[in-house]
């Protein structure tokens, strides 16, 4: 529509537009692109052979595996929780709803280091449940369960935060209609609710996964840093860096960076491919 093109907002002089665009691009290049390039440049400084060797090294493989295991437990857990919580918040009215929403948001506002310490205080040998667990031979912190718990805590809000506004906007008329037509609760969920939220859900899961794999602070507190056993990728990067093994440190870091890039691409593809559908479900 030509009328819009001559609108007030676009009538700034050309130099102004270029200045703004230039600033934004320079900023992006400086803070996003340059570090990314630096990571890969450092990782490949001694050639692809050294890069590959660093990635297939025993402890690096263990770190990559551990990160995948932790994410494979934490992300589905938060997926189930996120859907349940946003279903509950969006479709029902009850007392204490705002309190519940605030609680869901809590991990966003708590420093990750504190999140880790919570688990040390709970499950540590001097913690509330530590002595009991030790007597049963159950190890929570400084082992995989602790890493999983800390990761779940930190990535708790991602799915729920994504779904709550979406489901609130969609309202519960469709579900009501389904129930009136004789569908069971389960059928309603699978046939009506889930198709409506699937793209938002996928988006939330992507973000959740990215954070679960990249988390450093909280897992650092509960890990115990046992090489090859309780080091996730971000922790392994720190160890390698501290051992003056810069090529290996950046090689593992580059894997994390690639995970981030894959997430970004997946998100863009989602938006590009299903953007219309996404917008449609939002405005039903």
């Amino acid at each position: 529509m030509p009328a819009n093109r001559s609108g007030v907002a676009l009538s700034d002089p050309a130099w102004m537009r270029w200045l703004l665009i230039g600033t934004a691009l320079a900023f992006l290049a400086l803070f996003l692109l340059l570090p990314l390039v630096a990571v890969f440049a450092e990782a490949l400084r001694r050639g692809f052979g050294a890069y590959w060797a660093a990635l297939v090294e025993e402890d690096a493989v263990a770190a990559i595996k551990l990160t995948l295991i932790v994410a494979a437990i934490a992300v589905p857990a938060n997926l189930v929780f996120g859907v349940a919580a946003s279903w509950c918040v969006a479709k029902f009215d009850f007392r204490g709803k705002n309190l519940l929403i605030t609680l869901i948001d809590l991990p966003f506002s708590v420093s990750p280091v504190i999140s880790g310490l919570i688990y040390v205080l709970l499950f540590g040998l001097n913690g509330l449940m530590g002595p009991f667990l030790k007597a049963q031979g159950i190890q929570i912190i400084f082992a995989v369960p602790g890493l999983v718990l800390a990761t779940i805590f930190v990535t708790f809000p991602f799915v729920a935060r994504e779904l709550i506004p979406l489901m609130q906007e969609q309202g519960s008329e469709e579900e009501e209609a389904a129930l009136v037509l004789g569908a069971s609760g389960w059928q309603t969920f699978w046939r009506v609710t889930l198709p409506n939220i699937k793209w938002g859900l996928l988006y939330g899961v992507l973000l959740c996964n990215a954070r679960a794999m990249g988390e450093f602070g909280a897992v650092s507190v509960v890990s115990g840093h046992v090489r090859g056993y309780t080091n996730t990728m971000p922790l392994h990067v720190e160890i390698l860096y501290n051992e003056y093994n810069f090529v290996a440190a950046f090689a593992v870091a580059s894997v994390l960076a690639m995970l981030a890039l894959v997430t970004l691409v997946a998100k863009t593809v989602l938006e590009w491919r299903f953007g219309a559908e996404l917008a449609a479900t939002r405005h039903k």
């Binding site: 499950f123 913690g127 530590g130 912190i141 400084f142 115990g224 046992v226 090489r227």
Partner: peptide, 15 residues
């Protein structure tokens, strides 16, 4: 496992 000595002692105390 490696780290600052005091921090490491703390981890052992914590289990």
């Amino acid at each position: 496992s490696h780290g600052g000595s005091g921090k490491q002692a703390r981890s052992v105390i914590d289990g």
